[in-house]
Design a protein around this nucleic acid. Sequence first.
DNA 1: AGGTGTGAACACTTTCACAGCA
DNA 2: TGCTGTGAAAGTGTTCACACCT
Lengths: 217, 217
Amino acid sequence: MSTKVSDSTIRRLSHYLRILETLERSGGGTVSSTHLAQAAGTTAAQVRKDLSLFGSFGKRGLGYQVADLGDRIRGILGLDRSWPVVLVGAGRIGSALFEYRDFRRRGFEIVSVLDRDARKVGVRWGPIEIEDAATLEAVIARESVEMLILAVPAPAAQEIVDRAVAAGVRGVLNFAPVRLRTPDGVFVHNVNMVMELEALSFDLTSREHGLEVGRGD
Amino acid sequence: MSTKVSDSTIRRLSHYLRILETLERSGGGTVSSTHLAQAAGTTAAQVRKDLSLFGSFGKRGLGYQVADLGDRIRGILGLDRSWPVVLVGAGRIGSALFEYRDFRRRGFEIVSVLDRDARKVGVRWGPIEIEDAATLEAVIARESVEMLILAVPAPAAQEIVDRAVAAGVRGVLNFAPVRLRTPDGVFVHNVNMVMELEALSFDLTSREHGLEVGRGD
DNA sequence: AGGTGTGAACACTTTCACAGCA
DNA sequence: TGCTGTGAAAGTGTTCACACCT
């Protein structure tokens, strides 16, 4: 029960959860791995393998209880609680993230926004007032924050992370296009939109040159 | 030369390219796979394997010519051209993406922004005027666009994609939290920020329960 | 010596196929 | 019968180790 769990499995669990929540809203009942797989764009065997890494949640012949499975996955992912998050960087991306409703809906609450720019410090964003990035450590302590969203320019990113980690942060969602160095026990997930467009560019380019991938006609 | 190339390889190529461009700016010369690997956070063997999928770009005993390797990777990724892109959705995320400088820097140019909301249509964003989403097909034809950035609410996403694909779009960067259905030959890459936070939540939660991962002390 | 290119070994992930319970 | 849970097989991706070129 404490073996290595792959990143893809976690992403799929997150996806299953989204589907289960839709089902919860429209009544509940039970789902089969086949149904979940179809909705998530994977296979029934994959769904069962993913879940079986954490326990036996279904009933043979019946499937999974929608509400129960939802609870289980929330438990696995650590979503049966609320996560206070600090956002560093009040630029365009930071602002979009701050307004992003789905974060709060899932229990991630941005409790403080910091920026280095003196012209931004003090500005109100809804219920929050932008604070000086110099006070990062104090804010992390004050809010007991373990997660940080980093939306600052690349050159500033590493310094902020170093300070945040020293102040107790253990997880970072990084939007800056740099590979951050962190000690063991600190987790970084990167969102790099340029990289995604480049992957798309590759897909379109290779197809043009005529790869196999198949259309058939 | 036309074998299957994994997604991870493409992402790493994109990363190598970023490093090479930094090196280009600071003089050029040559790099070894070891050096590249270190900067990209991977292994020398991995770098060589990745590159060898596309050809032999290095000189034994010497390494890779920085400028040349950059050109090669740009060629592989299809970045030796400019890509016109249509952005659908002029909300918070759309706006942040529109202002995102790194897109243009890499040859992705947002040539048109569309929105369904009549109050947004006609609004100027710098050199561009927001157009009505109803004209999607016309815009795609007019601008000869093959790539779409989707930043609309989840319920609207599938319809936009269907229409865009029918009008000739072959690649979509999707920010809506839904699995899009597309025909063969159309590529979709998803950016799901909630999913990333949930993965972080899992990381932090599992560590708390005491997994192996190792800190040692 | 120094560093690439690559087959072979290894590790990890996904799929298969079926035993077993409701 | 229907659908889960899971070992075993197949498939993918990564690392090793070394021949070979400069």
